[in-house]
Structure formats: C-alpha cells, structure tokens
C-alpha cells in the first residue's frame, strides 16, 4: 500500500443512469460505482483493486433531497452529507439523520461523501447507516431489468455486503413520512471528536405523550453489521418511558449484543456502555419536541 499512489483502473463517466446500468451489466463485479469516491480512493490505496470505476460525476439530477409531508424524504445517489446537513426538513423531521450527518467524518468529506455511499459501505461503524436503520425506509436499486426497493431491514447482509446485486445501482433512499409523535436521535462514542465510532446508536420513537407506541433502536460497532435491538424495542413498545424503564434498558442491551475487541475499543467496554448510549438516544429523542 502507498497512500501517495493510486493503482491503475479505467474510469468510466456515463452521462445517464441507463448508461451506468448498462456498464455495470457489462462489467459486473469487475466494476465499482463511485460518487464522491473518497472511500474507494482510500480503499484502493490500501489494497482494494477493481478494473473499472464508474463515476456518477457526469450524471445530472441525482443530487436531490426532497421532503414531502405525506410521502417522506427522498435522497438521491449523489446527495452529499453536507446537503443533508443544510436541510431544515431533515433537521426537523429526521433529527437522527441530521445528527449523524453533523459529526460524519470531516467537513471536507461531508462535502463529497454521499449518504447512499455510506449505506453501501455496509460498515458496522457507519454513522448514517445507524441513523437510517433506526428511521426505517427503502433503498431503490436500479438494474438492467428495472427498479426494485429493498427495506433497510433487509439491506445489510454482512460486513461490506449489501442486498445490492453487482449489476444494480443504488439510486435513491426513501425515508418514511413522520407520523404524529415522531422522535428520533443519534449519538456515538469516539476516542476524539473526529473519529470513527467505537459505538453508535440511534432511536426512532413514536410517542403518545409519555407513552412509546413504537420504537426502532439501532446500534453499531457491536457486530459485523449494524443491528436492531429488538428485545429492547419490545420493552419500549407500549410502555411509559420512566427512569426505571431506562435503567432496565441499560442492563438489557448488554444481553442483546456480542461485540469484539478492536483498535478503537474493547468488547468489555462496549458491552458495559452500549446500554448507556441507548439510554442517551432515547432520552435525547424524548426531550426534543
């Protein structure tokens, strides 16, 4: 590896989604798609190889971010983290995503990295992944045969592996329209403020007064892929959020996860602290109107 030198490949610059899809159809797993390209550049400098990079740079119309109170949020394949961050709608209706975007990597990378790119990375530490997983929604994939939608609940399959087939492009992310009593929040723990998460978590709650009607909790860095805390969600469902319940959750979360040691933290720490982080995201979500 050498961080000064990129290995060789052919760069393809299609001008329409259809052209991109047909290139993918042609080259299959010999090609990778890039938008900002930051992740791929770093990966290629550290050993990842691909024959073709298909850049979305010349395809117009994919960098949209559209909110509709009845249908929800649509985020295009080229929409950057910075665009998410400058959206008042995201901040108001999808605070978990906005909060994840606000600490995502660095300002420079937020200007080039895309939300969909982060989802496709399928890293258990992905901050946008964590937020989107809790918020729920669909990812629109386009292949030669047309489009299909995959729920975020079925999108991440293994470390670095998603439900996207090699000849498909992830073209859009849809987040559902917020229902009444909708709350969400994201938090993470890091070694320094600018860092990859050693633990991240998001909560998406549907509240009726102090009572929680529905809950989706996601947590990262505790398995090969980000995970939902379904047992803890069940504790919340239909319950009033009290200090006692939160303390019960703090102890329960540790039983639902089986993290490992890595360079950023230890299994022991993650086990002990994951519940605290979940308590924080629930509390933070509830505090926000």
């Amino acid at each position: 590896m050498n961080t000064r030198i990129m290995p060789e490949f052919d760069l393809l610059l299609p001008e329409t989604v259809e052209q991109a899809v047909s290139l993918l159809d042609k080259y299959q797993d010999k090609a990778s798609i890039i938008s900002g390209g930051t992740d791929v550049c770093v990966a290629m400098k550290s050993g990842y190889r691909t024959d073709f990079l298909i850049s979305l740079a010349k395809i117009s119309g994919l960098d949209y971010l559209e909110y509709d109170p009845s249908t929800g949020l649509r985020i295009g394949a080229k929409t950057t983290i910075s665009q998410v961050l400058s959206s008042a709608d995201v901040k108001t209706y999808y605070p978990a995503l906005w909060q994840a975007a606000s600490i995502f990597a660095t300002p420079q990378l937020r200007n080039t990295a895309t939300v969909i790119g982060n989802l496709l990375r399928a890293s258990p530490a992905g901050d946008c992944i964590c937020a989107v997983y809790a918020l729920g929604g669909n990812i629109v994939l386009q292949g030669a045969e047309g489009q299909r939608e995959v729920s975020v609940d079925e999108f991440w399959l293994a470390y670095g592996v998603t439900a996207r087939k090699v000849d498909e492009i992830a073209i859009e992310l849809n987040l559902p329209a917020p229902v009444k009593g909708n709350r969400s929040s994201f938090k993470r723990l890091t070694r320094t403020n600018e860092d990859l998460a050693k633990l991240n978590a998001a909560a998406h709650l549907e509240m009726d007064g102090k009572k929680c009607k529905q809950a989706r909790l996601s947590i990262g860095c505790v398995a090969a892929i980000p995970m939902r805390l379904e047992k803890t969600e069940a504790l919340l469902k239909g319950a009033e959020i009290t200090d006692d319940l939160l303390e019960k959750i703090v102890t329960n979360v540790g039983n639902e996860i089986s993290p490992i040691d890595d360079v950023r933290s230890t299994a022991e720490y993650r086990n002990q602290v994951a519940g605290v982080l979940i308590k924080r995201v629930i509390t933070q979500a509830c505090c926000k109107s």
């Binding site: 961080t3 610059l13 890039i34 390209g37 550049c41 990079l53 850049s55 420079q108 990378l109 080039t112």
Partner: peptide, 10 residues
C-alpha cells in the same frame, strides 16, 4: 474538499 482522495478526471 480533500484533493488527495479526489480523482482529477471527475
């Protein structure tokens, strides 16, 4: 942006 992770051709 960071020019070290930006392909010039894009």
């Amino acid at each position: 942006i960071c020019s070290c992770v930006t392909l010039a051709a894009t």
